[in-house]
């Protein structure tokens, strides 16, 4: 079973991303959108803990913040987001 976890809160003011990373399995994936894309600004080991995961990032949320998609992640548009939601067994949105 695989889960796509969707996080939209900044890791600098909120515990959602940290908690999600703690329980993310190797079959699972993480989609960053909204302020969660600020996760790319994490430093040191906090950033390293992201780099070895299956990470997707909503491109428009990168663009608007003048951030670039790093090579270890995959940028997605909304149609690709929908495809991802179907590809994984379930979607867990961290509301």
């Amino acid at each position: 079973m695989s889960t796509l976890h969707v996080v939209s809160h900044s890791p600098f003011s909120d515990t959602r991303l940290g908690s999600c990373l703690r329980l993310l399995g190797s079959e699972d994936a993480l989609l960053l959108c909204g302020d969660a894309v600020y996760a790319l600004q994490l430093q040191g080991s906090a950033l390293t803990s992201l780099e070895d995961k299956n990470v997707f990032i909503l491109e428009e949320d990168l663009l608007v913040r003048n951030l670039e998609c790093p090579i270890w992640a995959t940028g997605v548009d909304y149609p690709a987001f929908v495809e991802l939601s179907i590809h994984y067994d379930k979607v867990n949105t961290w509301l």
Binding site: T3, K90, N92, T93
Partner: peptide, 18 residues
């Protein structure tokens, strides 16, 4: 544990996080 949380999430058809 984190490992057990992952297994519990796997076991359910749908998950809602609030």
């Amino acid at each position: 544990s984190a490992e057990e949380v992952r297994a519990v999430i796997d076991r359910y058809d749908q998950v809602i996080t609030l």
